[in-house]
């Protein structure tokens, strides 16, 4: 195989991985439309329960066997979906966090977030409605 062909395949592969992992956070009535990456990670780890506008936080995730769940786990917990599921099970068992809402797919995540003030989710494969997009600072 030609060197240039190999390089092209490698670059294409890298760009696909990057695209797949860059999710778009969405939320409704969070009191802000901009958040830092660290603040978002903290929310998805269960470390925030009330937004600054006093709406309760509802974390919305796709099911634990979905690609989105795995990608969120890698980003939020620096781990995998297995550890992320245990992390949330434990938090809920302690009574220190409300359970996330798990939905079948990203279209359900969009619908849920649209209908619930304080809800926040991440989309990887679905186009995010502009009015719900949370800008990452």
């Amino acid at each position: 195989m030609e060197y240039k062909t190999l390089l092209a395949i490698l670059l294409l592969g890298l760009s696909m991985v990057s695209l797949g992992q860059s999710g778009t956070p969405i939320g409704k009535d969070l009191g802000t439309t901009k958040m830092s990456d660290e603040a978002l990670q903290s929310v998805f780890r269960g470390n925030k329960s009330i937004w600054n506008n006093q709406n309760p936080v509802t974390v919305v995730l796709t099911s634990s066997n979905s690609k989105g769940f795995e990608l969120t786990a890698q980003w939020a917990l620096d781990s995998d979906g297995f550890e992320f599921q245990k992390h949330w099970l434990s938090l809920v068992f302690q009574g220190r966090a409300n359970a996330p809402v798990f939905l079948k797919d990203e279209s359900e995540v969009v619908t849920y977030v649209q209908e619930h003030p304080g809800a926040i989710g991440i989309l990887y494969d679905t186009a995010a409605p502009a009015e719900l997009v949370i800008e990452v600072k």
Binding site: S63, S64, L89, A99, V101, F102, K104
Partner: peptide, 11 residues
């Protein structure tokens, strides 16, 4: 609501 997630039956 089932925790593992497959279905949202009510809100």
């Amino acid at each position: 609501l089932l925790f593992n997630g497959a279905h949202l039956q009510a809100q």
